[in-house]
Amino acid sequence: MWSWRHETRAAYAFVERNVHLVKRYWGWEVVWLIYSIANALSVTFIGAGMERISGQRVDTQHLILYLLTGTLVWGYLSVVFTLVSETIQWERWEGTIEYTLMAPISRFTHLVGTTLFSLLYGFLQTAVILAAVAACFHLDLSGANLLGAAGVLLAASLSFSALGMVGAVLPLLYPEKGVQVVQVIQSLLLVISGVYYPVDVLPRALCWLSQFSPATYVLQGMRAALLDGAPLRQLWPCILALLLLGMLLMPLGVWLFGKAERYARRTGRLKRDG
């Protein structure tokens, strides 16, 4: 009898397979981690240099932590979003897409498996970057609510994964250019979510749009937890907003993916190209 146990096993298959792939590509993983740390450092050094840039006194530690939070959240979002949304492109490149899509599992299970791995990977990478940058700048995180920050990031995972599923639709529909469009979506999120600045400095239209981006709430929550050490009860509004967005986006992502897969099967676009 086919059961939830089979589906769980199948979801775990994607986690296990991707862990094996990470082990095989370990050299590239190290390169990617160095790039991510360098990227985070280059942004946070803006905070370190702000007094010299502006000629004014600023709270450098606060600014560094503000920018670091942005770069951590952006890094996490990028990893989750990219891993989920590029799962189709990756499998198409490897030539395994048809094998995976004809497996006797629900598409929800497939996407959940891919998402679970991306969350684990994203969390691990974010923790390593935080540790590296904190060590570099001798940041004092004793007053930060690290557990609360992790909780906010966890709550955001649902909606980030759902956004990834929406993004995964594009390479399915447009094998050649779909991934580039995903990057465009990612950059739009970067602009409207206040990754490196408060959203109220944005023009009114963009500021209005920012309320629909899960990244806006995760940044608010993370900054409150890391910069002000806000306790959990103060973080709840952000966590609730993130969970609500996640609950709306997740069914939408799965539904859209199902529709796109059907279109791809009707038009013969699953076939490997290149």
Binding site: R9, A10, Y12, E16, T100, A103, P104, I105
Partner: peptide, 8 residues
């Protein structure tokens, strides 16, 4: 093993 897990 990946294939086997997909097939339960």
């Amino acid at each position: 093993l990946f294939g086997a897990r997909l097939y339960g």
